[in-house]
Structures are given as C-alpha cells and as structure tokens.
C-alpha cells in the first residue's frame, strides 16, 4: 500500500491543470484538450472530461465565459483582490495609453490588463482598439525609418521637419522635431494631422549633452535626475551637471527657475538661446 504522503488525487490534478491552462490564454475546446494532453505521457483528456473540469471551476465561482468558441478566465474569486480605487487607477493609466501611445503600447497594456482580469476578483475596463492615437505611432515609425514628416497644425500652419522623439511633460505630449535648424517642441494637442514623407533625413539630430553649473545652496541640495550625471562634485562653491535627453524647452524652462544660481556652460547653442529668452523676457518690461 502506498504511503499517504505519496497519494494524490488524479481528478483534482486534472482540474487544476485545466485552470492553469485557462489562465494562460483564450482557447477552443480542441486547443485545450490538445494542450492538456501534450503534458501527459499518453492522452487522458477529452472534450467530455474537460467540460466537466471547466464546470467544476465555474462551480467554484471562477468565471469562464465561452466567446467565439474560446474559453477564458475573466474572474478568479480567490485571486488578486483589487478595490474600486485600484480599478480607477488602472483606468487612469489606461486612458493615457489610449490617448497618447502607439498601438503596440496599447496592445501591451491590454495584455497586462487581460492578465489582471484573469487573476483578479474584479472586472477591469478593456481597451477599445479603435481609439488608438495613430499619430503617435506614425511619428515613431518616421523616427525609426529616418523619414521627414509634415506636421499639420490646427491653426493651418504646416511644418516639414525632422522627427526626433516624443516627450512628455506635466501630463502633456509633445512632438520634438528639428525645424528650420532649430530644435522645437510641438504640443500634440495643436496637431491636426501628420504625414510621413518619402524623403529621408541623414545625420544625427539627437539632443546634445547639456552641461550646466549650479551654485550656492542649490548646488548643495540638488538631486540628480535619471538622465543626469555629476561632472564636478560640490567644491564649496558649485557643481557641474551633464544632462541628456530631457527635451530642450523643458530643460530651459527648468533651468530658468534656478535663477542666477544656474549657468549653462555647453553647448553654445543652448547658452545663446538662454540669453535670447532672458533678453526677450526683460524686453517685456521695456528697454532695460
């Protein structure tokens, strides 16, 4: 007689195996039977027993609808316990993906939500595939294929420019482009259309590394960002920082905030632009 510790219940294992497969994806009965049998030394699963096991799972409160002939789990009552607040938070993340991101990102986020749906005890909103913002996708394709683009703005202006990258700031999306020899950020809200041109661009239009010096109390308390590197540590007077990829307009607006405690060292184009901004700001108050 086998020892109790080695005894197990075959039917129970088969139910658990069925659930395990169902948690991995959406399958027809035929696919389910095939998948389950592929794990066994010889076929033991058939339509009738798998139906019984699916019913057993359903009896235990696991929601397994059959849509387009495919079975899938939509609710696991003893799974991840998501609250209404959690669902709202996931919804707010989902809205950003739907509004601003490419279809590849939407698909990836959809997969993530699908997994949470399977494992949680709450229903999460699913992504509507027709609401993807295609402009972002076209822009990113143009960057990877190194093609120029025509950005059409709501006010009727058109920019034939070189796409660099998409940038986020304070919850808003910008198209970072190179237009008329200048690095520009165009608010996605202002764009009514985008055309990818057949004309290719050559050269590297990525932003340069920007070096700035911080003085006084700011130098002591400054916390480096993810995209920054400390070039010179605090020497009693100042620090030097290299920044890459923050987006020119975002970086300049931030460095302006630092007042006279900040000075851009390199590149000269950024330094010149900073001077132009400050000079123009002073001109707002008359000739000073």
């Amino acid at each position: 007689m086998p020892k109790l510790s080695s005894k197990k219940n075959i039917a129970s294992m088969q139910v658990l195996k069925t659930l395990q497969i169902l948690l991995q994806g959406n399958f027809t009965m035929h696919e389910l039977v095939e998948k389950l049998n592929s794990q066994e030394p010889e076929p033991i699963f058939n339509n009738s027993v798998v139906s019984k096991y699916i019913n057993t799972c359903r009896y235990c409160g696991i929601e397994i609808p059959k849509i387009h002939n495919k079975y899938f789990v939509t609710n696991l009552p003893f799974g991840l316990d998501l609250t209404a607040v959690d669902i709202d938070l996931l919804g707010s993340l989902q809205n950003i993906v739907r509004r601003d991101m490419t279809s590849r990102m939407n698909k990836l986020f959809n997969t993530f939500l699908d997994k949470l749906n399977r494992f949680s005890n709450k229903r999460i909103m699913r992504v509507e595939k027709d609401s993807y913002k295609l402009t972002a996708e076209m822009f990113e394709n143009a960057v990877s294929e190194r093609r120029q683009i025509k950005l059409m703005l709501k006010n009727g202006l058109e920019y034939i420019c070189i796409p660099i990258k998409m940038i986020e700031n304070q919850g808003r999306t910008f198209f970072n482009v190179f237009y008329k020899n200048k690095d520009r950020m165009i608010d996605a809200e202002r764009v009514s259309g985008l055309e990818v041109l057949s004309r290719k661009f050559i050269g590297n239009f990525n932003e340069p590394s920007v070096i700035f010096e911080l003085k006084g109390g700011l130098a002591q308390r400054y916390a480096l960002r993810e995209n920054e590197q400390l070039l010179k540590p605090y020497d009693g007077e100042s620090i030097k920082v290299a920044n890459r990829g923050e987006g020119k307009d975002i970086l300049l607006a931030r460095l302006l905030r630092y007042d006279k405690d900040c000075e851009i060292i390199n590149p000269k184009s950024y330094r010149d632009e900073m001077f132009e901004i400050i000079d123009a700001a002073l001109n707002n108050y008359g000739s000073l």
Binding site: A11, S12, Q14, V15, L16, K52, N55, T56, C60, F78
Partner: peptide
C-alpha cells in the same frame, strides 16, 4: 450537480482558494 462537476476537483480548488 455532482454528475456535472468533479467533487475532488472542487475540494482542490476550494483548498487552493482558502490558502491563497
């Protein structure tokens, strides 16, 4: 309902759910 479901299977799921 017992002819529609596996009783031992149900025990396994209940036990799993309780321990999870």
């Amino acid at each position: 309902d017992l002819n529609q479901i596996s009783l031992t299977g149900m025990r396994a799921l209940v036990l799993l759910g309780m321990l999870m």
